[in-house]
Simulated assay, not measured.
Amino acid sequence: MTTMQMGTIQLMTVLRKSDQGYILQKGKTEAFLSEQETTRKLLNGDKVDVFVYMDKQDQIVATMNLPQMVMGTYGWASVVKVVPNLGVFVHIGSSIEVLVSVDDLPIVEAVWPDVGDKLYVTLGQDKKGRLLAIPASEEQLRDEWEIADSVKLNDRVSGYVYLTSKEGSAMLTERGNRAFIHHTEREREPRLGEYVNGRVIDVKEDGTLNVSLLPFKHERIADDAEAILTYLKQRGGVMVFHDKSSPESIQETFHMSKSAFKRAMGRLMKQRQIIQEDGYTKLIDK
């Protein structure tokens, strides 16, 4: 039984060469170092810094490719694989991939991280001593926050989402600011670890931000109007949708609210691109 802490960097001594690598030793603990995990040739008696962990066969192994975080420290890790009902695997800067368990991910798989997303994690262990990556909590991230003292309303910000909920999402911006995205300020719920771009809608007294992922109102109206025009052109310039159409049918067809639909229709009529008559909306032939 080893007393060596897995998931840490240890200074170990080369005990002997084996067919496929080296046997390292520290105290009474031995670890296998594959040749593929070395960064230089080693001789018996050499002392090397290695990252030690338990492999799938419950053997202690080592690598000279040191990770970006160890037990007790945090760092950003890229998602490299998603396994339904199990979790996601992240790259921690070493040659190994570490599991983020389903227990530490959102209940709804639709907002699980995808390949390429990034999580702010530390290392932990399962009951068998094998490595796990554990996402940082809101409390643990507080030490990383920077006071947003130079950020202004409508400034553009980008960063990674570290918290998801029905109420909203929280992100850490590239400047290190904590930003909250209320559920009314997004078209969909971002994934945990997703990189998002938004604009500042409030700078709070505690130095954190409120951010919207939605475009400005005039930009939204322009986008909605373009969607309506595209729909009309695809149907020969005539559609059955108009100001009196049901909110449900508008949402199902155009993926916008009825109020947004009416604003876009109003713009198009003011620009004399469409006309409504006899229960139909028609393109004006110019």
Rank of each mutant, 00 (worst) to 15 (best):
P67Q: 09
H255C: 08
D55K: 11
K166T: 09
L119I: 11
Y120R: 08
D155E: 05
R130H: 14
V238E: 14
R142T: 14
G124D: 13
V61Q: 00
V115H: 01
G207Y: 08
P106H: 04
D206F: 04
R272D: 12
D103K: 14
D104N: 15
V203D: 07
V100L: 03
S246M: 02
L43H: 09
P67Y: 10
L119M: 10
A225P: 08
Y74P: 00
E194I: 05
M69G: 06
I147S: 15
Y160V: 05
V240K: 15
L213T: 00
R130C: 09
V82K: 06
I147E: 15
G87M: 05
R267K: 15
V200H: 12
G279Q: 09
M12S: 02
D149I: 10
E219I: 04
S94M: 09
L132Y: 13
D243P: 03
Y22S: 00
A170S: 11
G124K: 10
I250Y: 06
F261R: 01
S169F: 01
Y74N: 05
E167D: 10
T39Y: 03
E219Q: 11
Q140K: 15
S101F: 09
V14L: 03
T2A: 12
T253Q: 10
V111E: 02
Q273Y: 01
Q36Y: 11
S137E: 08
L43A: 08
Y195H: 14
T73Y: 01
E252D: 13
V196M: 03
T8M: 07
G129S: 04
T173K: 00
S150P: 01
A136H: 10
Q234F: 08
E35P: 01
K118G: 00
T13G: 01
V200G: 13
F216C: 06
A260C: 04
V100C: 04
L232T: 06
E189F: 09
D224Y: 11
V50I: 13
A260M: 04
I228V: 12
E252A: 14
S101T: 11
L42D: 13
N154W: 10
S34Y: 06
S150A: 14
G176W: 05
M265V: 14
